[in-house]
């Protein structure tokens, strides 16, 4: 299990990185950030990039910042940077909750938020987060940059809208209302394992009814997605047991589950329902704690 040979590039600034990437793009040049998914694939010889452009030495790609009602997560922000809330309010707490579900402690020291989006594993917690919250991906090549909504950025399992000469410089997440509530539930075999199903939900209570509902499902289908129909069902409702159950039932029925030898389709569909229920209850209870 040794990676195949490749040429290594370590640019010191973004311009240099994009220049190199434009030159090596046609030879399967890839960005190396955390490497926690790419390197195992290379060790198993499932990936053979001819060039790796290591961006770890580019200072401008460090950090997480608030800019105009958005949280800007730059390319070198590691999972571990979210262990403590990266921003005050519900978003920071939610990201901390999600971060603790990602792999294990040492992996979180290296793996990056933006790298998770570039990798686009169906079981990625950050892909689900970006899609559910309506985040966008900042993609850049030598000729310029563009902002791609997360929902369209992720096109399939391990497939994104990123062009070969483009890299993710940041992901932008809108900062929700200070009184919004969130819930997250992931089912996996052991802590840190790939999700078999997960649900992320966020809404703003008005009186005791839900508005601005966002509900996303990950780990269960080829790509994470919001379930608009379920969001509509929930909008204007109180979070009663009955509402929770019918939302879960609807969500489960809408899913086209992934199948693998250890996870039958009907089981995964069921887990989606369970995840929706448990995420909604977590959101409800997060309100009660205040």
């Amino acid at each position: 299990m040794k990676p195949a040979p490749f040429t290594y590039h370590r640019p010191g600034n973004l311009e240099e990185a994009l220049d190199i990437l434009s030159q090596v793009a046609h030879e399967d040049g890839r960005i190396l950030a955390g490497g926690q998914s790419l390197v195992p694939m290379m060790a198993l010889r499932l990936a053979f990039p001819a060039h790796l452009v290591d961006i770890n030495d580019i200072p401008s790609l460090q950090g997480i910042e608030v800019e105009q009602q958005s949280l800007v997560i730059r390319a070198l922000a590691r999972h571990a940077h979210f262990h403590q809330p990266a921003v005050s309010g519900p978003l920071g707490s939610m990201l901390a909750t999600v971060a603790h579900s990602i792999a294990h402690y040492p992996i979180r020291q290296r793996g990056t938020f933006c790298g998770s989006l570039a990798h686009a594993d169906p079981a990625s917690e950050w892909c689900l987060t970006a899609v559910t919250l309506g985040g966008s991906v900042m993609a850049q090549n030598r000729n310029g940059s563009r902002e791609i909504p997360a929902g369209t950025f992720i096109q399939g399992p391990m497939t994104t809208a990123l062009e070969a000469d483009e890299m993710i410089t940041a992901v932008r997440l809108p900062i929700p209302d200070a009184d919004s509530r969130f819930g997250f539930y992931e089912f996996n075999r052991r802590a840190g394992d790939f999700a078999l199903a997960m649900c992320q939900v966020m809404f703003t209570p008005e009186e005791d009814r839900m508005t601005g509902v966002r509900l996303g499902i990950g780990g269960a289908e080829e790509v994470p997605r919001r379930l608009g129909e379920v969001e509509e069902m929930l909008t204007g409702q109180r979070l009663t047991e009955k509402v929770i159950l019918s939302a879960a039932e609807r969500a489960a029925s809408m899913i086209t589950p992934l199948e693998d030898i250890q996870t039958p389709v009907e089981y995964r569909r069921h887990l989606v329902g369970t995840s929706v229920r448990r995420a909604l209850k977590a959101a409800r209870d997060s309100g009660n704690e205040r």
Binding site: P40, L44, R189, R190, A191, G192, D193, F194, Q262
Partner: peptide, 12 residues
């Protein structure tokens, strides 16, 4: 792989 074949970990 150890991601598919699951050994007991400390929290199990």
């Amino acid at each position: 792989t150890f991601a598919d074949y699951l050994l007991v970990a400390a929290d199990n």
